[in-house]
Design a protein around this nucleic acid. Sequence first.
DNA 1: ATAGTGTTTGTCTAATTGGCCAAATTGACA
DNA 2: TGTCAATTTGGCCAATTAGACAAACACTAT
Lengths: 98, 98
Amino acid sequence: MNQEIIKTYQLEASVFKAMAHPIRLFIIHQLQKQKHGVQELSNIVEIDISTMSRHLDVLKRHKIIDGEKINNNVFYTLKIPCVLEFMVCTNKVINQAK
Amino acid sequence: MNQEIIKTYQLEASVFKAMAHPIRLFIIHQLQKQKHGVQELSNIVEIDISTMSRHLDVLKRHKIIDGEKINNNVFYTLKIPCVLEFMVCTNKVINQAK
DNA sequence: ATAGTGTTTGTCTAATTGGCCAAATTGACA
DNA sequence: TGTCAATTTGGCCAATTAGACAAACACTAT
């Protein structure tokens, strides 16, 4: 295993990985429009709030979103709008005629 | 769990997932320049050829690359050049000053 | 200080993934 | 047909991940 190559692409891969989950893609899409809180998001997705908190943490750790505490609520915002351009390409991939 | 939302983003997530591995990102980069064969790639990365074959299969199944058999060798080509634009954005994410 | 609300973290479990080796498959060609 | 080279697939193991629930934590406001 050539560690040189692995190392070169590991960081990049980890950002892809952070986005490679349906709920996390949903979050990114939601935050494009406006800030959202943890509870709100977990209600929409109908998932345990602790699970949602973990998904948000994954995105935050990779600097894709940012959390801001206002009173008792944490509101998340999308830090990297260019992430959404990814999707355009992804959908080209998906919609390719084989 | 809101199956509606999951379903909406699952396909998209699976494309991200297909790319979310250092070796597969390396493959994508290599193929940008020219076709490559399985052995060749596995030599560069210094990984078992069977493992390389599986990585190529993942990318092929998601229509990111395409394989063409010429004699006894399978040569792979990048089908979706826009995938590389992803990387530009990804690196913006990575290089953000916190 | 205490209660109450909202969020994160610990722990466990089931499922998925990446790696290697060995075996099977494919296709070219003698 | 049989052999050889290249590739893929089966099987196994170790590591990682997503999910739920419960417990801990952080803040606000009585």
